[in-house]
Nucleic acid binder design. Structure first.
Lengths: 328, 328
DNA sequence: TTCATTTCTGCATACGTATGCAGAAAATAT
DNA sequence: ATATTTTCTGCATACGTATGCAGAAATGAA
């Protein structure tokens, strides 16, 4: 009972061949209006839907995009997931979701995607191990790194322009008179965190600003703890630039817990503009990632590659904008 | 180049038949150790992986579970997504993710799941339209409603024991001397919110407590706004019981913005125990949903049904526990 | 050793769809 | 009207795997 009606059943009822039924559901195939009508009527009556497996077996390509995600706890990514699912659905694609614990994607994380002949893959916050890299190229499966880039010039990536954004942030902090600044990084082996630091420090270069970097891990607790350390070491700066919002919220809370007034005694800027940054308790100044546009660009690239594989490698960087709130 | 090696290629290299290759990868089939070894060696050399589509076409059942989710913004659900993906992967299943906007799942939301012959479906925070109900039964596809229940006695659901939990919450608030209480509901057409109210008010019944219900929508803004209204109407209670944490955080922030001291002037209890509830700024007293156990039970049911379909319908309710923090 | 039993293997076919090909039907031209 | 082109259709086959069946190989019993 599982697989109910097949194209054959529909064909019989409509009085046509199975091929004709197939052609009705295959975009671009040539069918007469009359046949189409008959088939659709029969299909409706029987409740027919083409079997995607059989279809993929023939075409050797599925309508599935693999989405690999790590930082599910950071509200930024569920938002990304939502946008991807919605956008891909519009184009007839579905999302096979893969959660990973690894910063660097391993073969076992994604072999399932290959087994399902996914049409393409998006990896949102992780990089690639070498063997995985090879597989993507070998099987010519379009891949986009989202919010991470990779320096091997073999894949397409879509990020916010982290370098420029961070320069603008530094510029802004200088303009309001900060002279002692701290950058709190995320995982240091992520391109995102490194780029943000690079832009930030580049802009401070040559100025008389006292600048220090501390390392953390992109989590709220990470931000909270490192801020506590800094406070206890009496290293309080004029301003914190924190590599993402969720850590920044941790920093803000640590400061509050130590009765340090924001923005009077010190300032905090985050990155991402997650929903919570706008909440009244936080009111966090931050950089807005152009997330909708980033997703659209990713989908656009994927669809192009599916149309005709080029293997184009490029780091697409999209601007964003500074959102001024009450922590600066 | 897309689909590289097939079982036939492996067979040739290993000097056996395609059937034997198939049997090596099919659990429970009978193959000699020698053949198995030869096949695995050849497969390793060629990089063979069985094509899931062809496989599903034969068995008429995929290793895919459809996961339908609505409230992606509420941190509770990404956590659920993570746990499901992890648990299902252990059992060899993958997750086809579907995002929906609808409180009530429509045919178009999930027809894709049927096209892919999903082995089972989990719907996390939505109910079902009638036609969808029928399809699940007709095609005998196991379905679990997660964190929602449905009163038609046709499906399995897994929830926290919302009724008992809410009674316990009321009991606790009574025990600390609250005499004026407000319940803030989520979407009122969700079983979850209704059950929580039912338990809460049942326990207050007969006591001299002044009790009122206000309606909201399970979002932070919803909680924030309704709390502002309540404050402006000078209806401030001794305690708020809020149908979920994310709204409760909104309530807390609204109270803070009005300089109302928590827990001295009023108290707040949420529901879910999302990560943020433990953050120092909030320190929210809440009810912990036994989320890991809920997910495990869901997976267990699905696997049983896949073993042998029973269509068992039941509302499984699992306890949880009161987490006391600083808002009470 | 020989025979009975069990375990394994290859053959052939099936799953539901897409598609090249050749011929039928329809449309257009003459 | 016929001839020519175009559009459509059915037939047959292919995709990569699983599986019933019958026979081969291995094992155990005597």
């Amino acid at each position: 009972m599982k697989q109910g009606v097949t194209a054959k059943d529909v064909a019989k009822l409509a009085g046509v061949s199975q091929s004709s039924v197939s052609r009705v559901y295959f975009e671009g195939a040539s069918v007469s209006a009359k046949t189409k009508e008959k088939v659709l009527a029969a299909a409706e009556e029987l409740g027919y839907r083409p079997n995607e497996f059989a279809r993929s077996l023939i075409t050797n390509q599925s309508k599935i995009i693999g989405l690999v995600m790590k930082g599910v706890q950071n509200p930024f990514y569920p938002q990304v997931l939502k946008l991807f699912t919605t956008s891909l659905k519009k184009h007839g694609y579905s999302v096979l979701f893969v959660y990973t614990n690894n910063d660097e994607i391993q073969k076992e994380d994604i072999e399932i995607l290959f087994n399902y002949n996914v049409a393409g893959v998006v990896i949102t916050d992780a990089s690639l191990s070498l063997s995985v890299t090879e597989d993507f190229i070998k099987y010519q499966i379009p891949l986009v790194l989202f919010n991470r880039k990779i320096d091997n010039n073999k894949f397409y990536s879509v990020c916010c322009n982290n370098y420029e954004a961070s320069k603008r942030i530094a510029e802004y902090l200088l303009s309001i008179g900060c002279t002692k600044m701290i950058y709190i990084s995320g995982n240091e082996n992520t391109s995102t965190s490194r780029e943000r630091e690079r832009g930030f420090s580049a802009m401070l270069q040559g100025s008389k600003v006292h600048y220090q970097k501390y390392s953390s891990d992109y989590t709220y607790e990470g931000g909270y703890n490192i801020a506590c350390e800094i406070i206890e070491e009496k290293q309080l700066p004029d301003a914190f630039f924190v590599a993402n919002d969720i850590m920044a919220l941790g920093v803000v809370d640590a400061l509050k817990d130590h009765q340090i007034a924001i923005p009077n005694e010190t300032k905090v800027i985050g990155f991402d503009n997650i929903e919570m940054a706008a909440w009244p308790t936080y009111n966090l100044t931050t950089w807005e990632q152009p997330i909708t546009e980033m997703v659209e660009e990713t989908v656009k690239y994927l669809l192009n590659e599916l149309e005709e594989y080029s293997g184009e490698a490029k780091n697409l960087e999209i601007d964003g904008s500074l959102i001024l709130r009450k922590t600066t």
